[in-house]
Amino acid sequence: MSHDSSFRPRRFVLGQFADSDRLLLATRQMREKGHTGLDTHTPYPVHGIEAALGLGRAKIPTIVLLGAIAGACLAYSMIYYMNVFDFPINVANRPQHSPPSMLPITFELAVLLGGTSAFFGLFGLLKLPEPYHPVFEAESFRRASIDAFFLSAEVPEGGNPADVAVDMRTFGSTEVQIVEESER
């Protein structure tokens, strides 16, 4: 089969806004108008963007909690297995199973697994690293990490990007462009 028929480039409408307040407002209006696949691109986190995009609760806290619990359980059972069950050492007849001496490592491993799940869980959730994304096609998008505020909307298959662009311009975008995924 040929490349031409199998590859359907994803299309995005990318609108730039003068400041974060206008971006927030336009995001809410676009969403209320029924546009899907919306995302904002800002140099720093903008207060209120989650509500404007209609995002649910963040998933990271649950992942971290599970990671930390797993770390604590792993540590405690590891120490128990090694020092009580598999290779007990009798030092001055102290108890083999001595919880106070097991707490430091239990705590450390809870932090270690909690922290690594905060980090790697984040990249799993965000599907990063993702070196290529169609929004990078726009040259002006370089400013998204420096000082500019963008709103992107993925155009659904069969949709007309021009319609989305018109809406975005109505809601206050200073510069609207349509970008298309390039075939690699």
């Binding site: 140099p43 995009l53 990271i60 930390a68 963008f150």
Partner: peptide, 22 residues
């Protein structure tokens, strides 16, 4: 491939805060 996505920032802020908390 960080692109300052609002969806990413939402989770990122939590991850950063929790790492600080840990």
């Amino acid at each position: 491939g960080w692109r300052g996505s609002g969806r990413h920032w939402a989770e990122y802020k939590w991850s950063y805060l929790l790492l600080a908390g840990l």
